[in-house]
Design a protein around this nucleic acid. Structure first.
Length: 589
RNA sequence: GGGGUGGUAGUUAAGUUGGUUAUAACGCCGGCCUGUCACGUCGGAGGGCGCGGGUUCAAGUCCCGUCCACCCCGCCA
């Protein structure tokens, strides 16, 4: 190991030298981005996370340094001492440091590099496989560095904001307790308690509520969470939440704090204004108008209901759907009459993914309505449809008739899909809104599941329904939505033990099970629980949206593949037999 | 568990209806070159087509299976 670094301190980064530095003697460190050997002069583009500076090695300036420079190849790490000189006529206006170059007088090769398997450029130059295997090389790319820099900045903005609002940052354990419902847990065996396991937290939910009971009335944490479920572009098994909980507050108080948080993060990062308070939509309204509980409100194209108009339709499929309690939802795609038959077929295939049996369409042409189904419509029906959807020549009507849930979901997905492909949303806009009044329960196969989580307070107005018609109970739960993405959710917590027990009962969690799984929590609730409420923001998604990325992998330093593996460290992997023996675990496969 | 897309030199891609020694660009190696910044220029090396079967006189090209990556459905309180 050379003593270069004890003799020469790095004086500047590769992104900061300007014309005003000409004449200074500087020391830079970085990676060789590119080299151009002219036989005499050798030009090296030296890169670090701050930028790129051109080095010039001239044999008439320093023979030894020039000979060293002749050996340099892509991604070698070097330190260089030299003088900042003007490039004179040869300024490169494309580079921030393009007015100057550093005339190399002493070159230290810290380390050579193997030839990189792919080019370290702005655009990804290899498939995901290879990029993930050589993550450290992919992370050298400018766009990924910018994303991680943005993320770091957002972490600081978050901490500063909560600090300014009197919140305490409190860490909760990673080794937690398995939970009875929700996602699958990641389990960690306990060596000193053979046969027993910890679970990694799906969220710090119970502990942050216990912190309220303990009197820490304003808590936040940038918390790592773990869920063993299948992945998506916007879902990693290990992710980060901006988690918070507050005592003695109502829903509006929570909203105010979060609106302030979003303002504090989004405005400096995007330069776009965040208007507060955010608009509010009830869950039901969101579903009926947008077919989604996380609508993108940057564009219109809202869903309309044709159920009443077509209840008696000559078209048997429509009338039958209405007769059996279903609904008919429609959407007016402006200028959509130009869609080709094959495009419409693709849209039909699209809604089928979500369970719709088909997609009807009508083109509004100058000569009249064009569609296979038009002949079944009376003039009165056509007039009513035209008025309901605001139809004009050139429009395209898309219709799904199905059960309530399928009709709304498939049309909602279709609306989002068309919004993307037709570029209906302004990419520079950040539409934040609250979706409120979620149902407390989700009914599937006659069984009730918690829509949010089992500690969510029922709307006090609906307490009676907990005993008469639990499926209709509204929760004091709310989601934050931005540009069609669920950014987070929260609720007023249930702080009455009798209500909490009734909820467990309805969820099919028996006394004994509740005691075993949540006993600690139910006991805590009896020791002076303040009314409290909280929220959690999906940090990774927020970074992704503000970075303009389309995958969480682009905002997480070391992400997992869709099969939840890490191709760089090659995990998961089999433990040593001795480890398993110590843990008293036998692997059966 | 299911649907879709992709896998061909180090990399990115092309490869006609199955048919002589599998193309290109970038990268890599060597020579020349003192104003390049996608440097230029001359020369060179490098793969048998993800893997395993099968059909055929003949298979990147067709069939079956399998692995990996990505997107989606289910799943994700």
């Amino acid at each position: 190991m050379s003593d270069f670094l004890s003799q020469y301190k790095r004086t500047h980064t590769c992104g900061e030298l300007r014309a005003s530095n000409v004449g200074q003697r500087v020391t830079l460190c970085g990676w060789v981005q590119n080299y151009r050997d002219h036989g005499g002069a050798i030009f090296i583009d030296l890169r670090d996370r701050y930028g790129i500076t051109q080095l010039k090695f001239d044999p008439t300036v320093d023979e030894a340094a020039h000979q060293q420079a002749d050996r340099l190849r892509s991604e070698w790490v070097v330190g260089v001492c030299g003088t900042v000189v003007s490039r004179g006529e040869n300024v490169n206006p494309k580079m921030a440091t393009g007015e100057i170059e550093v005339l190399g007088e002493l070159l230290e090769i810290f380390n050579p590099s193997l030839t990189p398997p792919f080019e370290i450029g702005d655009a990804p130059s290899a498939n995901d496989n290879l990029r993930l295997e050589f993550r450290y090389l992919d992370l050298r790319r400018r766009p990924l560095q910018e994303n991680l820099i943005l993320r770091s900045r957002m972490n600081k903005l978050t901490r500063d904001y909560f600090d300014s609002q009197g919140f305490l940052e409190i860490e909760t354990p990673i080794l937690m307790k398995t939970t009875p419902e929700g996602a699958r847990d990641y389990l960690v065996p306990s060596r000193v308690n053979p046969g027993q396991f910890y679970a990694l937290p799906q969220s710090p939910q119970t502990l942050k509520q216990i912190l309220m009971i303990a009197g820490y009335d304003r808590y936040f944490q940038i918390a790592r969470c773990f869920r063993d479920e299948d992945l998506r572009a916007d879902r990693q098994p290990e992710f980060t939440q901006i988690d918070l909980e507050m005592s003695f507050v109502n829903q509006n108080d929570v909203f105010e704090v979060l609106e302030g948080l979003m303002k504090a993060i989004v405005e400096p990062v995007t330069g776009q204004p965040v208007v507060t308070p955010f608009p509010r939509l009830t869950y039901r309204e969101a579903i009926e108008r947008y077919g989604s509980d996380k609508p993108d409100t940057r564009f219109g194209m809202e869903l309309g209901s044709l159920t009443d108009i077509l209840a008696e339709s000559q078209l048997k499929v429509f009338a039958d759907v209405v007769g059996s309690g279903g609904v008919i939802k429609a959407m007016n795609v402006k200028k959509g009459a130009e869609f080709s038959r094959s495009q419409l077929d693709k849209l039909t295939d699209f809604v089928k993914i979500y369970g719709a049996k088909g997609l009807a369409w009508i083109k509004i042409n100058a000569e009249g309505w064009q569609a296979p189904i038009v002949k079944f419509f009376s003039d009165a029906e056509k007039a009513a449809i035209g008025e309901r959807l605001g139809l004009e020549v050139g429009d395209l009507v898309l219709i799904v008739a199905d059960q309530y849930r399928i009709a709304h979901e498939s049309m909602g997905q279709l609306r989002a899909h068309l919004g993307k492909t037709l570029e209906l949303a302004d990419p520079n806009r950040y539409d934040l809104l609250w979706v409120v009044d979620f149902p407390l329960f989700d009914e599937a196969d006659g069984k009730l599941n918690a829509m949010h989580h089992p500690f969510c307070n029922p709307n006090p107005a609906d307490f009676e329904l907990l005993f008469s018609d639990p499926g209709k109970v509204r929760a004091q739960g709310y989601d934050m939505v931005m540009n069609g993405n669920e950014l987070g959710s929260g609720s007023i917590r249930c702080h009455r033990q009798d209500i909490q027990r009734r909820i467990f009962e309805l969820l099919g969690i028996g006394e004994e099970e509740a005691e075993q799984k949540f006993g600690f929590f139910l006991r805590a609730l009896q020791h002076g629980t303040p009314p409290h409420a909280g929220f959690a923001v999906g940090m990774d998604r927020l970074v992704m949206l503000l970075a303009g990325a389309t995958s969480l992998r682009d905002v997480i330093a070391f992400p997992k593949t869709q099969k939840a593996t890490d191709l760089m460290m090659q995990t998961p992997s089999r433990p040593d037999a001795t480890q398993l023996t110590e843990l008293k675990i036998r692997v059966t496969q």
